[in-house]
Simulated scan of single mutants.
Amino acid sequence: MTDEPLLDIVVAVHTAQRPVERAVGSALADTGLPVRVTVVAHGIATESLRPRLASISDERLRVIEHHDGIASPAGPMNAGMLAATARYVTVIGSDDHYEAGALQAALSRTTEGAEVVILPIRRDDGGRVSTPLPRWRHTRRLHPARDRLFTRTAPLAVVSRELMLADGAPFTEGLSSGEDLAISTRLWAGGARIDYDAAAPAYVIGADAPDRVTAALRSLGDELRAVELVLGDPAVRAYPRAVRRSLAVKIARVHVIGAVARRHGAEPTTGERTVLARLARELSHVAPGYAAALSRAESGVIEALAHDLPWIDVVDRDRERDEGSWRTRVLPTRLVDSLRTDAVLRRFMRYRLEPGGGR
């Protein structure tokens, strides 16, 4: 293309079996949009992708190679980001795609002053993914805590390149998973103007690629390393208390309790239990009082981990999140905390107002 693009879109692909042409085609569908797509061939030759991309003849497409021998998308995504020159950048999975008008809608927000425009997400089956879950009818200048931005980990957003690359390569390398946790945390909490409209055209998660790089179950140490790095970051510890609490609630629910839920039938090793116990305690140090927003069942799991109870007791408490009474599943330990922003009851009430629904 002769003119500098306004938006650089990075697609990392590690095998020619991925339907990368669909992602690229959706990004380039609007021939008048000033975008450029950079496909990063990760550990494979660009030639192997030619059959996939043969039908796309567009000067806004380029393919580069990145070889690091690491089964993580961080390396190729960083390579694509560092090759970007546009004012705004974004990433898309090689088996995902954009609905018509999604990029145009996001770029129109940047003309109004947004530095980050979070894209709505839906699944291939049509269901909306309600993360983040902002205050009703709030679409501009969102707040990290009040608008629950931390519930979205993947930075699937149009972002100012200057902001994305403020600390150099944005995705954390050397991790087997969680490479996007640090950058999304920094983006959501960094004070930039963030917009998000759940009713806008969406980013669509593909369901036909079973070989996602980060899909496999890993050791707990590997799985939670990204969380440990974020909680140990002095910048994170300096966030306002409400922001730290919101982040801690998300980490407790998604990362710590999520790790337990995936291991009901496989008791962690002694070392892995140490990691879980340390994180369960560390959350209270980083964000005192955060657990007030947890349901009684969720609090039970965190307390069991912190006190190093037998694994069977941890699992029994975790099952209460699905099988317990309504009070156990939904209400916090103190009823007065039921309407906290991150409380389960408050979230359920907000879901009822979300167009298209879905968690």
Rank of each mutant, 00 (worst) to 15 (best):
residue 1 M to H: 13
residue 3 D to P: 02
residue 9 I to C: 05
residue 9 I to F: 02
residue 11 V to H: 10
residue 12 A to L: 06
residue 13 V to F: 01
residue 14 H to K: 09
residue 19 P to R: 01
residue 35 V to M: 01
residue 38 T to R: 11
residue 43 G to N: 06
residue 43 G to F: 04
residue 46 T to K: 14
residue 48 S to G: 07
residue 48 S to L: 09
residue 48 S to A: 15
residue 49 L to W: 03
residue 49 L to D: 05
residue 51 P to F: 00
residue 53 L to W: 03
residue 59 E to W: 00
residue 63 V to N: 03
residue 77 M to L: 15
residue 86 A to D: 05
residue 87 R to V: 02
residue 90 T to P: 07
residue 91 V to C: 14
residue 93 G to Q: 11
residue 93 G to E: 13
residue 94 S to Q: 11
residue 97 H to Q: 08
residue 99 E to A: 08
residue 102 A to S: 15
residue 108 S to F: 00
residue 108 S to Q: 14
residue 110 T to C: 04
residue 123 R to P: 00
residue 124 D to R: 11
residue 128 R to A: 13
residue 134 P to Q: 10
residue 139 T to V: 15
residue 139 T to S: 11
residue 140 R to H: 10
residue 147 D to S: 10
residue 148 R to Y: 02
residue 153 T to S: 11
residue 160 S to A: 02
residue 161 R to S: 06
residue 167 D to K: 11
residue 167 D to E: 15
residue 181 L to G: 01
residue 183 I to M: 08
residue 194 I to Q: 05
residue 195 D to S: 06
residue 197 D to F: 03
residue 209 A to E: 15
residue 210 P to Y: 05
residue 211 D to H: 14
residue 213 V to T: 15
residue 216 A to L: 07
residue 216 A to H: 13
residue 218 R to A: 04
residue 226 A to E: 01
residue 229 L to G: 08
residue 229 L to Y: 06
residue 233 D to M: 03
residue 241 R to A: 12
residue 249 V to D: 07
residue 257 I to D: 00
residue 274 T to L: 12
residue 274 T to R: 14
residue 276 L to H: 02
residue 286 V to R: 08
residue 291 A to S: 15
residue 291 A to H: 12
residue 293 A to C: 09
residue 303 E to C: 04
residue 309 L to S: 13
residue 311 W to N: 10
residue 311 W to A: 10
residue 313 D to V: 12
residue 322 D to I: 00
residue 322 D to H: 13
residue 326 W to G: 15
residue 337 D to K: 07
residue 339 L to W: 12
residue 345 L to D: 00
residue 352 R to M: 14
residue 353 L to H: 10
residue 353 L to K: 10
residue 354 E to A: 11
residue 356 G to K: 12
